[in-house]
Amino acid sequence: MTEAAQVPTEAAGADLLLRAHDLKRYFDVSPPFLNRVIERLPRAIVKAVDGVSFDIGRGETFSLVGESGCGKSTVARLVVGLYQPTAGGITFDGIDVAGQTAAEARQNVQSRMQMIFQDPYASLNPRWRVANIVAEPIRARGLLPSNREVKARVGELLTQVGLSPADSEKYPHEFSGGQRQRISIARALAGSPDFLVCDEPTSALDVSVQAQILNLMKELQRQYHLTYLFISHDLAVVYHVSTTVGVMYLGRLVEWAPTQTLFNQPRHPYTRMLLDAIPDLEMTGRQRIPVAGEVPSPINPPSGCPFHPRCPHADDRCRAEMPTAHATGDSHVACHAVDDGRLS
């Protein structure tokens, strides 16, 4: 099959909101030129994202999971325009927002996309009152004419995220971690976006606080028909929030499927391995199957299938040839063993 076959098609109907097509982002992490010459060090390129395609339907939650360094945050940053892609395209509501001539289009849709980060403290200006933090996107785009209206809107937003209008006079340090994440969400909602990119939004929070934030995010999604690109390394959280899940490994999507399918019938050996590694509350005392090996360096990725050094099903073809994603049932899987029928 061709590369184009990698684009999932289920969500591609009228409801398509965001499409990433064969996205790539490389980083040059070479030592300085002189060192390279003197110490004869080679150029080093990190292929942080290397050919990722996915579709997100309106009102859905598409999640990316995978081990540290597999490229999840880089995808998030590409989608919201914080990074330019090395290659590939992104369309938002049918508009090309990543091409060479897309700067203007990006401007126009920017207010419809917002990002929520992992560390709610680092992403809030400590010297600003909450009122100004939340009002910033409103003021920056001149969405409301008077200060009085801005203030009313800020009060409304704070109420929506479970804080009170009186909190607008306080500074970020006066809040707990969960409350700070609520402030980030209020700010993200200020410009009435329809698409939120959430990069590990609850990873720095206690589970009880995480539950509050996840409930809030789901409620807001239902109320405003929001679409989420959700990133987490916690598979149980992903199970809870997602419509569709994509599993990344070394800059590539190795499998994507509707949530229930992915968790009930994982196909890619890496997905199976990740699911086996989850500590399970239900099965106290169960011996987890420890995953062999660790993620290889993205600077010198293995030949063939990037997962082959850790894969119990690898054969010669896996060591030589990069698998492309094919549809099996409602999953898409990039694995030779699945293609060859060695693994169902």
Partner: peptide
């Protein structure tokens, strides 16, 4: 408040406050 794989719930148990 901990999500479980295999138990789909619309809403997680929430302990109010902090």
């Amino acid at each position: 408040s901990i999500p479980h794989i295999g138990h789909a719930v619309a809403k997680l148990t929430q302990i109010e406050g902090s």
